[in-house]
């Protein structure tokens, strides 16, 4: 059955007719040519299709496009326009988190990166709202993004896989933007030479 829906993607409004069975991911990629959301597994297991949906990180492969009529979506191609980003009028510039991914080598092939970036922005927002995680010791203690250590970042980002194994750089990039980036030699993260040697 065909249904007409409206999606706002990276600030642009689209009216599009989709078959009811179309996932949001396929609607973005195949109907709207928004290819920054990537299809990895198509079964909720890799996180590469993550976008910010109504402000929260969300998979697009396990949801139907018709269920999102009227919703606002921001993909990695649109995050620079978000608060904390470079702003609307600088469409070619990057969000600080994207800059940090570059600075810390948080990617290799780049396929998982758009999902990682959206997930990280959503994750930091959750932390700002005080959400605990599986590795948070005291559930009643307040949570602050700057206090997230490597274990916290890894746990909160566990829904995003990276086949290239760029995890070390991804964690560093996120911690830098969170405001609690580890300094070299800090105990919870081996210093660079040690990491090199471990490869």
């Amino acid at each position: 059955m065909d249904t007409s829906i409206t999606l706002t993607v990276d600030g642009r409004r689209h009216d599009v007719v989709v078959d009811t069975r179309t996932t949001l991911l396929d609607a973005l990629r195949e109907r709207l040519a928004v290819t920054s959301a990537k299809k990895g597994c198509d079964h909720g297991q890799c996180g590469s299709c993550t976008v910010l949906l109504e402000g929260r990180r969300h998979l697009t492969c396990l949801t139907l496009a018709v269920a999102h009529d009227g919703d606002e979506i921001v993909t990695a191609a649109g995050v620079s326009a978000l608060e904390g980003g470079a702003g609307d009028d600088a469409p070619t510039s990057l969000h600080p988190l994207q800059e940090a991914f570059l600075a810390h080598d948080g990617l290799q092939c780049g396929y998982c990166t758009p999902g990682q970036v959206c997930s990280a922005i959503g994750m930091l927002d959750e932390a700002k709202q005080g959400h605990p995680s599986h590795v948070t010791d005291d559930l009643e203690e307040s949570v602050d993004p700057a206090d997230l250590d490597d274990d916290e970042v890894r746990e909160r980002m566990s829904g995003n896989l990276c086949r290239c194994g760029a995890y070390g750089g991804i964690v560093d990039a996120i911690r830098e933007v969170a405001g609690g980036a580890p300094r070299e030699g800090q105990p919870d993260r081996p210093a660079q030479p040690e990491r090199e040697a471990a490869r």
């Binding site: 993550t50 990180r57 998979l59 997930s119 605990p132 599986h134 566990s158 995003n160």
Partner: peptide, 12 residues
Amino acid sequence: LLAGASGQIRNQ
């Protein structure tokens, strides 16, 4: 809940 699925899936 926090031991299950992922941040994205739990939002959904």
